[in-house]
């Protein structure tokens, strides 16, 4: 099944590889680009516009995103969510409220789930970020992703990346030990379509397969 085949223009791999010198000019560098490039390629390259802020209102952060090291110059105002989506074309995390009220932007920082919309991008300097794009091992889905398919734990799919990232953390935290606990600890992720029944079932299922919870 394939849909939306022509949303993203195909661009060559090498467009993603920016040298250190270019990085100073273009504000972004992708180091060791193998997996990161592969996941980003399907969309487009990092955006390379010059930043319209003064030197002291910008900063260079070095971070790891989905296992790949990245050094990038950012406007200090930028949220982690906008960095991922608009600069790095990692659009799996979604903007549903931009105020920490819906959970659609959930990603992991150093293994813990956070709302990327309320996280200043500057805060991930020196830390590891995991997004939905980095969850599966290549073509092998994470058990939580498979469980979401099996239990139809989604409809429109907009909240789904955030739900899955939250759910994986929920199991890892040990908060998936009962339906009641799953419901409480998944309440930071609003699903407006109303797929909660499937979401709870998927997490119970995946928790058993993940060996936790």
């Amino acid at each position: 099944m394939c849909n939306d085949p022509d949303v993203a223009p195909e661009i060559p791999d090498n467009q993603l590889l920016v040298s250190r010198r270019d990085a100073m000019i273009a504000s972004v560098a992708v180091v060791a680009a193998s997996h990161f490039a592969a996941s980003a390629r399907a969309q487009t390259g990092p955006r390379q516009a010059a930043l319209p802020v003064s030197v002291d209102q910008a900063l260079i952060i070095r971070t790891s995103i989905n296992g790949q090291t990245l050094e990038i110059r950012i406007d200090a105002r930028t949220s982690l969510l906008d960095l991922l989506r608009e600069r790095l074309a990692l659009t799996g995390a979604k903007k549903g409220c931009d105020h920490g009220q819906c959970g659609a932007c959930t990603v992991h920082i150093d293994g813990r789930r956070v709302a990327s919309c309320l996280t200043l991008a500057g805060k991930v300097d020196g830390r590891e970020v995991l997004t939905i794009e980095g969850l599966a091992g290549g073509d092998t889905l994470h058990p939580m992703q498979q469980a979401f398919i099996d239990h139809d734990a989604l409809q429109c799919g907009y909240c789904t990346p955030g739900q899955i990232m939250a759910a994986v953390a929920c199991v890892a935290e040990g908060n998936a030990t009962s339906r009641e606990r799953i419901r409480e600890y998944m309440s930071g992720n609003i699903c407006r379509c109303g797929a909660y029944v499937g979401i709870v079932a998927a997490i119970e299922d995946a928790a058993a397969k993940m060996g936790r919870g």
């Binding site: 920490g100 959970g103 789930r113 709302a115 309320l118 996280t119 939250a166 908060n175 930071g188 992720n189």
Partner: peptide, 9 residues
Amino acid sequence: AASQQLRNM
């Protein structure tokens, strides 16, 4: 209070 995501932050 809040959600686990916000409590982590």
